[in-house]
């Protein structure tokens, strides 16, 4: 059920944590190690936990995302619409979500 624009070149893919307000696209991968510095403690559990949390809030590969709002300081946190559900999260954790921008026509 991964849509066709998922196949765009990897060069366009970027972490959700670094995109601008108003960004529209789809999730291509979840890479929890990017959104967490827990691994420095030598335990993988928090990394897996971040991944589970993100999935429980609907961040799965193929889901449509749109960045709706951002905070005042450091444009953080962000409010993201994920397949119809609005989730607030910090850019730091959003770095774990790899997205590809929607084609202009979408």
């Amino acid at each position: 059920m991964i849509d066709s624009e998922h196949n765009v070149s990897a060069a366009q893919a970027c972490p959700l944590g670094s995109v601008q307000l108003g960004f529209k696209g789809r999730i291509s991968a979840i890479q929890p190690a990017n959104g967490s510095d827990h691994s420095v403690n030598g335990s993988d559990r928090p990394v897996e936990d971040l991944e589970s949390r993100l999935i429980e809030l609907g961040f799965v590969e193929g889901a449509a995302v749109e960045v709706l709002h951002e905070g005042l300081l450091g444009r953080d946190p962000i409010a993201v619409r994920v397949d119809g559900v609005t989730i607030a999260l910090r850019r730091r954790e959003a770095m774990a979500i790899i997205v590809t921008p929607a084609a202009e026509s979408e």
Binding site: N41, L54, A88
Partner: peptide, 11 residues
Amino acid sequence: HPTPPFMLELP
């Protein structure tokens, strides 16, 4: 200690 995540649904 590392900073834990903030994630919240906006209903």
